[in-house]
Structures are given as structure tokens and as C-alpha cells.
Amino acid sequence: MSRAEIVESADAAVAGIEDGSTVLVGGFGLAGMPFDLIEALIRQGAKDLTIVSNNAGNGDVGLAALLAAGRVRKVLCSFPRQADSWVFDGLYREGKIELEVVPQGNLAERMRAAGAGIGAFYCPTAVGTPLAEGKEVREIDGRTYLLEYPIKGDYALIGAHVADAMGNLVYRKTARNFGPVMATAATTTIVQVDEVVEPGKLDPEAIVTPSIYVDRVVPVKTRHYTVQGAR
């Protein structure tokens, strides 16, 4: 089935995620983080996961809760250490989790490449730094580049604002962040949205993620996150 399926619960949305899967998780800090899908994934029980996300969890919720439940073998992210990343910090210091630090733009572009069928690409970021170690170096037209490989997901869990019943997506403000890129880079893309509307209700000119990238959509009624000072 290639057409997106609208499912009734976050649990139905994450059904079938296998042990050992690579899961791309959207969000930048809390904005765009698909909390309901992550909580459902914890209930679902898949383990030995590789998680690709910008951060490695905040506080004790969302990704941090998945990590605390011992389900994650490895994290690829740009910025694991934050003021409230104590769950990740503890696991890392105890040697219970692997970390690959990826510069934020490379994280995005490597997933973009995966979604666009690009085998690898040369990128100037991190040349001459410790993160260049082991990477092929090439000079092109007087500038030095590193060879970067795609990051492909078995699953992507992302948050969007509104979907139509076809699976077309629009996002809200900076909660868009990694969502559109991750949607292209996973075999199965699972989306939580605030609302699902009839096809035709979204302006076709304004669609950010076309339905071809989307597999399962679940509408969730509540927002599970706030920021300091909100509400």
C-alpha cells in the first residue's frame, strides 16, 4: 500500500516497528517533537533501536523516556548535551549508549540525500576538525570537502500541524524543522498531527510534505509540551 493510512491511535500508528530499527525522530528541542508517537513506541516495546534526532531528549519525557526505558542502542544527533539532558548524560557516562555526533547541517543533508536517492556527497562542514576523522577528503575547485553518506531510516516519527486525508502535510512555524526531510528519508513515515481535514481543504500551493512521503497519520487532540513561560 502506498497511500497514506489515517489511523485512530498512536499505538496503531507505531505497530510493527521491529527491534533493531533505525528511527528518525523529528523535533528541535520540544518544537515539533512527536510526543504521542514516542510514548506509543515505549508501550510497543521495540528495543535495540538506533535513534536519529537533533537532540537526545529533554527532561524525563519523550525521547528521554525512551532512552530511560533502555530501548536505544545508539543515538545520532548534533547536540546531545543540554541543561536538561540528564537521562542521556547518565547512560552515556555509564557506557550504556553509543553516540555519533553529527553537525546539524550534515544531519539534515545526509537525510535529504537518503530521501533523494543520492549515494553520497562532498561537504565542507567539519574539514580540519576532529569530526573529519576517517572521512574521505577531496579538493574541488580549490575548496576542501569531506565525503558524507546518507542516513536512511526504517521509520520516521514526526509531528506536523494539519494533514489532509491523502496524507499531505503542513507544519507550524519552527516546529517544521527536521520533519519534511525525515519524511523523505524513511521507509515508513509516521506522522502525528493536530488535525486531519478532507482532501481539498489544504491549499495545494502550501503543502510542505506531499502525501507520497507519508505512510501513517494519527490525529492527536492534545499538545503534550510547553516551554518555559507558556501557560
Binding site: S78, D89, L99, G105, T125
Partner: peptide, 12 residues
């Protein structure tokens, strides 16, 4: 704990 964020991309 190493954390680079967007610093390397911005720098270049």
C-alpha cells in the same frame, strides 16, 4: 560529552 549543534556548519 561532545555536542556540536550547528556550530561547524555556521563556521564555514
Amino acid at each position: 560529552i561532545p555536542a556540536v549543534g550547528g556550530a561547524m556548519d555556521l563556521a564555514i
